[in-house]
């Protein structure tokens, strides 16, 4: 089922949470809504689910205007951040809930429900735990029960709110891989919310980067990481070093010197690059030149704090641990990839 979001606006007590955004989600796609707290990503997910009503705008499931329908009628599978499992029901009862509450004419027979529950438990690798209660399960198990419960109603769209947020790092990695396989097997259109960029980049077909109720950029992991569309995206995804620069005559200038990078436009701008994505140079005929003022050991590299000559602006550069540059007090380098965004005002 494809989902189209058209000019959705949502205000909470006059405070805008979403500012008229649009998004097309293709059928069977796995989409991540990525952004910091308060960016509106969870609000967008809840709007798709029907747990919130938009102030303006429409949401289409296929050709059908879902925004006029209640959450029950939308037939979505929603996995809540803290799973919201019914604590007084067993695992099996939790999963069967969505089928048991159906009106008599569409409710499957008891034996059919039992079979569906057992199939679903099988699918999420929890067979044998049907008699357990939620508080007898580990975090990862609860997560999968919540997913099985959402899948039981054969939803048209699967929506997950911070699916791995409450789990520890190891379980999180395992489940991430598992969810990807699960999606590839079932082929449900899936939207999940996360504030963890690693999760979004690794898992999603496309990442929707959000900030302050707006979509900053939509694209594959390659797009948003290698070709960030705005300063926000560059800062938010991956590491970023930034330098205030000036663009003149198609060249990037820091103060009174060029640094050997070509750029379009004119006037003040900010140059972004990844700290680990630089070439170290011996001589410097137009490059970044600075004094190392600090050094920290990262897992696989050494991060140097460099004060640039002239502007005295401080930036960070990663150097391989065994690289001679790590031992020097002066550093000449040039970023391999970079982006410049004009400075507003």
């Amino acid at each position: 089922m494809d989902v189209r979001i058209k000019n959705i606006r949502k205000e909470f007590a006059r405070f805008p949470a979403l500012n008229g955004l649009s998004l097309d989600i293709a059928s069977s796609e796995l989409i991540a809504l990525l952004g910091p707290s308060g960016s509106g990503k969870t609000t967008l997910l809840r709007l798709i689910a029907g747990l919130e009503q938009p102030t303006e705008g429409q949401i289409f499931f296929g050709d059908e205007d879902a925004s006029l329908k209640s959450v029950q009628e939308r037939n979505i599978g929603f996995v809540f951040q803290h799973y919201a499992l019914f604590r007084h029901m067993t695992v099996a009862e939790n999963i069967a809930f969505g089928l048991k509450v159906r009106p008599a004419d569409t409710r499957p027979a008891k034996s059919e429900i039992r079979k569906r529950v057992s199939d679903l438990l099988d699918m999420v690798h929890l067979s044998g735990l049907e008699k357990r209660y939620p508080n007898q399960l580990s975090g990862g198990q609860r997560q999968r029960v919540a997913l099985a419960r959402a899948m039981a109603i054969e939803p048209r769209v699967l929506l997950l709110d911070e699916p791995f947020g409450a789990l520890d790092a190891k379980v999180r990695k395992e489940l991430r891989k598992w969810l990807r396989e699960f999606h590839d097997r079932t082929g449900h259109t899936t939207v999940f919310v996360t504030h963890d960029q690693e999760e979004a980049l690794e898992l999603a077909d496309r990442v929707v980067v959000m900030s302050q109720g707006r979509i900053e950029q939509v694209g594959s992991a390659d797009d948003v990481y290698d070709r960030p569309g705005s300063p926000f995206v560059h800062r938010f995804i991956g590491e970023a070093s930034e330098v205030p620069v000036r663009i003149e005559n198609g060249e990037v200038w820091i103060d009174d010197r060029t640094v050997g990078l070509k750029a379009e436009g004119n006037g003040p701008a900010t140059l972004f690059f990844r700290p680990h994505d630089v070439d170290f140079l011996e001589g410097c005929g137009g490059c970044f030149e600075g004094v190392v003022v600090g050094s920290r050991r990262l897992a696989g590299a050494r991060r140097l704090e460099v004060e640039l000559g002239g502007s005295r602006h401080r930036i960070e550069v990663d150097v391989p641990v065994d690289h001679p540059a790590a031992m020097k007090s002066g550093l000449n380098f040039r970023p391999r990839h970079w982006a410049v965004f004009p400075t507003n005002g």
């Binding site: 959450v71 029950q72 929603f78 803290h82 019914f86 809930f97 969505g98 509450v101 959402a150």
Partner: peptide, 15 residues
Amino acid sequence: GDEEAALSLGATGWQ
């Protein structure tokens, strides 16, 4: 949260 979960699974308000 629990109520929203029940509603999303198709339960009526009374259920």
